[in-house]
Write a protein that binds this DNA or RNA. Structure first.
Lengths: 261, 261
DNA sequence: GGCCCTAACAACGA
DNA sequence: CTCGTTGTTAGGGC
């Protein structure tokens, strides 16, 4: 549920809270997915200090002083909780808990148990991040996947990292492009507008979240979205918001968005 | 274009014309597909006598005295020509020519160059032949592919060998089953009717062709088809023939055919 | 009208 | 609302 802007602010706040702390112990609670054994994970990070926390696509990466990296993907319903040892047993739906030497605790929770934890992921296969999208990259992707609809293309994590269902709609509205346009049919002006909208919409949302929810490390806040909101009847410019499934994904858009085909 | 009944009669006539003849030489004309080198093919059949010619699915198999088998798939536009050395250079669109010691020539021609020639194909992967379909087999296939529409199922050469687009329509009309029925929805009466219709419709067509075109080794003759004919307005029983694409295949059917779903 | 390969899509489970 | 995997389908090339 959290998307790139939320995850970016989570990472900032987790970095602030955890950088410099040394890991006392790690516990994996048999929920979610883990790419190594609990013992391996423990060996890798116990005793190490957190040196940074960053977003990577839709994941949050924890960097440790000994070079190890742990990435967490929250999937649909996961979240982070900052707590302390005294309250550790009351967090519920635990996927992972990291206890630091000062007694503080970082927990990954997920009621569905789908959140994934990855020790030292191969970084080579990471797609370009959405915040770094350029017109050239986008042009190239549209040429390579001419028949894919533009919304599914934006959502494909193998092509661009970080865009989820809600912000895909926001971005396409900002660029005034219909989600149902085949990527190959976008003229270069549209590609330029889209390349422009992607980092802009996301950065704007990040700024909103920093102001509105300065300490967030979980949850989603979408009260400022312009079209992807169930209760909205019209866009900021007064066009009726159409609610429709595009390739099995709930999609909000308006007639202001041009369908190229 | 030729389908099972045509190919069956081709094989009979080719057997009559060629059985006992010894191959003098084989020439492959760089069109079509060949699974071995021209030299290998030549080594395999030069000097050998034809011992039989049979249809195998949509292919025609030439059997030689030394145990080798050559299968020809005519695809959309291929054909056989029986000729003699004197005329060999005027056949056009040549895929393969086989010259016999008596001077006669068998040519495989194909204007599109898609016809394929296979030396000693693995026979283990051949699906049951359409003429040998039983109610049990068909029941089994419908259970295994419940969501596949019955017409595409009949056309799948990995399941049943030999049925092409035109005769699939003829068979389904004979069984009074809509081509758009999912295979899994056919009740056992319908499966029985279909299992019955498959060999019957094909055998009837073979009989027609033997009478009408006793020497055919190429070309297609469909003047006796009951629904799959562009010029027909109604079926023999007076129902309007509907022309429609089913799974990208031109399909002719009538309202007499029940849609199970 | 034939077949094969690939890309796009849908459905299901975790 | 996410990401796999699997099976089906549509399209282009030969």
């Amino acid at each position: 549920m959290p998307e790139l802007p939320d995850l970016t602010v989570y990472a900032e706040n987790l970095a602030k809270a955890l950088t410099g702390k040394k890991v006392h112990e790690v516990a994996y609670h048999q929920r979610g997915k883990l790419n190594v054994s609990e013992a391996e994970l423990s060996n890798a990070v116990a005793g190490a200090a957190v040196t940074g926390v960053e977003r990577a696509g839709k994941q949050v990466a924890f960097r440790f002083g000994n070079g190890n990296i742990v990435r967490v993907h929250l999937m649909l319903t996961g979240g982070f909780v900052l707590s302390d040892s005294a309250k550790r047993d009351r967090l519920g739906y635990l996927v992972l808990t990291v206890t630091f030497e000062d007694g503080s605790v970082l927990a990954v929770t997920d009621e569905k148990g789908w959140a994934s934890v990855t020790l030292n992921p191969g970084t080579e296969k990471d797609a370009p991040d959405a915040l770094a999208v350029t017109e050239e990259l986008l042009e190239q992707l549209c040429r390579k996947k001419p028949k894919t609809l533009i919304k599914p293309l934006l959502l494909d994590q193998a092509l661009i990292g970080g865009i989820g269902n809600a912000y895909a709609d926001e971005i396409l509205w900002a660029a005034r492009i219909s989600p149902k346009s085949p990527a190959g049919k976008l003229p270069s002006e549209a590609v330029r507008a889209l390349a422009d909208a992607i980092p802009r919409v996301l950065q704007d949302a990040i700024a909103e979240l920093r102001t509105r929810h300065p300490d967030m490390v979980s949850g989603e806040y979408r009260e400022f979205l312009k079209v992807h909101r169930p209760e909205l009847k019209t866009s900021p410019t007064g066009a009726k918001v159409i609610k429709e499934n595009v390739q099995s994904k709930r999609t909000y858009y308006t007639e202001e968005q041009r369908l190229y085909q």
